[in-house]
Amino acid sequence: MSKASNQYSAKNEVSNTHVRRTIFQRSLISLSKAPFTAWLGMIIVSSYFFVAIFAPYLAPYGEAQIFKVPYAPWDNVHIFGTDRLGRDILSRLIYGARNTMGIALTTTFLAFLIGVGLGLLSAILRGWVDQILARFVDILMAIPSLIFALMLLSIFGSTALNLILIIAVLDSTRVFRLARAVGMNVVVMEYVEAARLRGEKISWIMGREILPNILPPLVAEFGLRFCYVFLMIASLSFLGVGIQPPTADWGSMVRDTGELIQFAAYDVTAAMTPILPAAAIGILTIGVNFVVDWFLYLTSGLKDEHQ
């Protein structure tokens, strides 16, 4: 050590620098240490996506195809039976993955587009823009979002487009708050100040200086918001004001077959009919939550727990 300091040179300066690893190497290292729950989560999420993408090939029948026997019992023809109108439950479950997840994903993307855009704008511009946006969001958030959504749907009507737009706008308030908060933490960094002193445009500062540095919390939030949006749409469909028939959707499938639950004492498989789509919703959310939990643990640096 002492020798090195005698002939100081900037090139050979020693210190605790990090070793560069590619994203791929990093992921491999993290994956090899991922806990059981994280693996479970990843398997669940990827199989759901698989089912959603290949729904037409996997489903035995069409999603709106009606058979003669309503409420058919579980057998070889209809593995999970049929519903009130005689539609195959299994096929509707498989198509449901596509519809329910598709709508929830679109909504979450839209919410992030609005929330992150405005949140970062607010963090960079500060001043009156920030004040107005933040106050406006405070007011939107003063009404519980499910209640707000119910009110707006009663006015504009429950079409898929309305559903996506209304929930995306309501949910973007939470994304806005997060993006604004983490954005603020980066905006005060001197490299952002340096970019402003250089005379860079807002779009450069947003896209090149800030966004790459707030990706980890945003990705985690995307998972959580997806769960929230997904559960909200499921709840609205269950309440009868979400996705409308004949589109196969898990929430409305629960609603349609809900009364069968009363027969659990006589025929357990019948009572399972509403439980299946409900479980499909729950298991996906658990999977996403497990993955997000692990991702948060990896990126938060909150590792004081190894005593």
């Binding site: 709840s235 269950f238 639950i261 659990a264 009572a271 409900a278 479980a279 919703i281 959310t285 658990i286």
Partner: peptide, 18 residues
Amino acid sequence: ISMPEFFVAYVLIIFLAS
């Protein structure tokens, strides 16, 4: 947290009411 309320409710109904 991940379970929709109606799922929890239905499971409870099956076991405690039906």
